[in-house]
Design a binder for these strands. Sequence first.
DNA 1: TACAATTTTGTTATGATATAACAAGTAAAA
DNA 2: TTTTACTTGTTATATCATAACAAAATTGTA
Lengths: 174, 174
Amino acid sequence: MKHEDSHQHSQQDSHQHSHHNHNDCIDTALETAETLCAEQGQRLTKVRRRALELIWESHRPLGAYQLLAKLAEEGFNSAPPTVYRALDFLLSAGLIHKVESMNAYLGCAHADKAHKGYFLICDECHNVMEFDYQDIHAALIEKAAHQGFELRAETIELTGLCAKCKEKSAGANA
Amino acid sequence: MKHEDSHQHSQQDSHQHSHHNHNDCIDTALETAETLCAEQGQRLTKVRRRALELIWESHRPLGAYQLLAKLAEEGFNSAPPTVYRALDFLLSAGLIHKVESMNAYLGCAHADKAHKGYFLICDECHNVMEFDYQDIHAALIEKAAHQGFELRAETIELTGLCAKCKEKSAGANA
DNA sequence: TACAATTTTGTTATGATATAACAAGTAAAA
DNA sequence: TTTTACTTGTTATATCATAACAAAATTGTA
């Protein structure tokens, strides 16, 4: 069974933002974004670029209006279409994912790879891990095809308890 | 590879409701609901029961406000909490599923079986098939566990083109 | 450059989905 | 029958998202 890459967006378990530094991820993501947009003749404008950065800077999936507030603080227009347009752009460029069950948006860690967004979402700390699982993808395609269904997009969102929170709650019970 | 049951909720491909008769499904679902609620000491009140029926009568996942309108027509209270309370009850009893990517609700065809709702959603006709796929379920549990994650719930929503719509569009191109 | 075409952004308004909070009613248990 | 738990009514509001059209910026082209 082939192994898959995974990406933990946060290293903390409280609701506060803090010193966690994943600047490398952010830088990489932004560079990838620049490259992809350039290749495809897409314009990564100021507001789109900044929206993408802010999404990456968040340790958790970010709601549209949370993002809008951050943008507004920085002098961007504060009307909803501003943020939804940026989100639409980033989504269709494959630079972010929408977590449907949270109505929130998350930076995509492998925008260059043409993949599906599979997520593990912790009920407790609300951190989200993205994972890529080729076996499941293949099985779903096969399964759909078996019913004559041509698969185009997948929403795979798994909720439960992450390792840290499981440990913590076990500790609390002991 | 083991096979799984599936359930096609609609037999038509237009947006209109019509003579399609899945009264048997509805009757079975309602009986199951009665039984399950009785067993668990839950009260399937008038509005909850009627909400469940209306969801089943729909050929597609039903939005909360669509359902609310139908209930209101029949003399039930027309304020949003009425419908959301009924939906919450039915969801937690496992009698319906929420399709997150559509913000809509669907009768659950195997409420008695304790399963996950996996869906195939046609982009064209918006019909939804529920399917149950033990292999994928097992693989997901294993995959999550491998990262120390304890899985509690799964949202698996696959979109694309159903057999009928694929046929139709092929016909149009010929 | 000047012009047209295209894309992006600004702006106002509204639609769609969902919940908070507290009062009143109803059914079940003691 | 009184208490308790649960369910429903009611008003208000929070949250998520888009329609429609005007203005500005960018790009392509003569």
